[in-house]
């Protein structure tokens, strides 16, 4: 009997994780959002980008995002073991050692930042480096376990990709890229708080100070409504910049009305009502929030491709 067989039922020995386990460390589902929003950032920018440069840039933006996901899993391994939603991640599942995830995350961060700076420009590379720093140090290490506003400020990390995409094409930052950033930034709190409303037990067990844990569900419902109301003008404002137009405005208007309606519904409900239908309204709002962001960025793409401007009306 070999030493491998002795350990096989407990954990994967250090250094023996499979390729898929390392891919799982990169949070592939989050990566898809990063890829899509960064792609939109590049495509709606006024400067054309060589297709291969665009492809390479998106690849390394995605890998940079994945690297920050790996570092997040390394730091959060202790609470990932407690929360049901995260117990199957490679570290708590015993497939990858914490040190391996740390090394992998750091190496991949360095490679992706340097390669993006070389492929596109220094501004894009610096923005990616700042994004990784923000997600890992500011959000994961500092805010997440310290303040119930963790999601609000930490959401900035997920909002950077379209801004990086814009920087790949233009070499700078402008009002358009700031508004694309602001859209995702303002969208994150209601999106995650809706999730927290029906996944509350997980955060309570892990002692993560989610708003639902520290201020209660009633306050969280109010926060969702307030942030949804604040999100609407930010989303609509993009209509009146160089990347906006009537198509984007129409899509954004409908989505914001639906989102506000959903937030009002959540705000009006109490816990008994929510538990009676197993958080149906909250789950629907969470699902809508996924479509909300995806369709906003799709509308920007359509707007850019069709080129219909306000002057045409």
């Amino acid at each position: 009997m070999s030493d491998a067989s002795l350990q096989s039922n407990v954990t994967t020995p250090a250094g023996d994780a499979g390729f898929r386990d390392f891919v799982a460390l990169l949070k592939p589902r989050v990566m898809s959002l990063v890829v899509f929003t960064a792609l939109v950032g590049i495509l709606v920018a006024p400067n054309p980008v060589h297709p291969f440069v665009a492809f390479t840039s998106i690849l390394f933006i995605a890998l940079g995002g994945g690297a920050s996901g790996a570092l997040n899993m390394w730091w959060d391994a202790d609470i990932d073991r407690i929360m049901k939603r995260t117990q199957k991640r490679p570290i708590p599942a015993g497939k990858i050692a914490e040190g391996e995830a740390l090394g992998f995350g750091i190496a991949l961060s360095g490679i992706s930042v340097v390669m993006l700076a070389l492929a596109a420009n220094i501004v894009a590379g610096l923005l990616l480096a700042f994004t990784i720093f923000f997600y890992v140090v500011i959000y994961t290490m500092w805010l997440k376990r310290w303040t119930p506003q963790n999601i609000v400020i930490g959401g900035a990390a997920g909002a950077f990709p379209p801004m990086i995409g814009w920087a790949v094409a233009t070499g700078g930052v402008s009002i358009e890229s700031i508004l694309m950033f602001a859209l995702t930034f303002m969208w994150t709190p209601p999106h995650f708080w809706a999730l927290a409303l029906f996944m509350n037990d997980d955060y309570t067990k892990a002692e993560v100070p989610m708003l639902t844990v520290t201020h209660g569900r009633k306050s969280t419902r109010k926060h969702i409504l307030v942030y949804t109301l604040l999100l609407a003008p930010v989303a609509l404002a993009t209509s009146f910049t160089s990347i906006g137009g009537p198509i984007y405005f129409a899509v954004s208007l409908v989505l914001n009305l639906l989102f506000i309606r959903g937030a009002i519904k959540i705000w009006r409900r109490d816990e008994d009502e929510a538990q009676a239908d197993k958080y149906l309204a909250e789950r629907k709002f969470f699902k809508l929030s996924l479509y909300y962001l995806f369709l906003h960025f799709t509308a920007l793409l359509l707007q850019s491709a069709l080129g219909v401007t306000w002057g045409g009306f």
């Binding site: 070999s2 491998a4 067989s5 096989s8 023996d16 994780a17 499979g18 390729f19 898929r20 390392f22």
Partner: peptide, 15 residues
């Protein structure tokens, strides 16, 4: 035991 070793080798090969 041999099967476990095969799994480990398969995993290493994949990586």
């Amino acid at each position: 035991a041999p099967k476990v070793e095969h799994e480990m080798h398969y995993r290493r090969l994949g990586r």
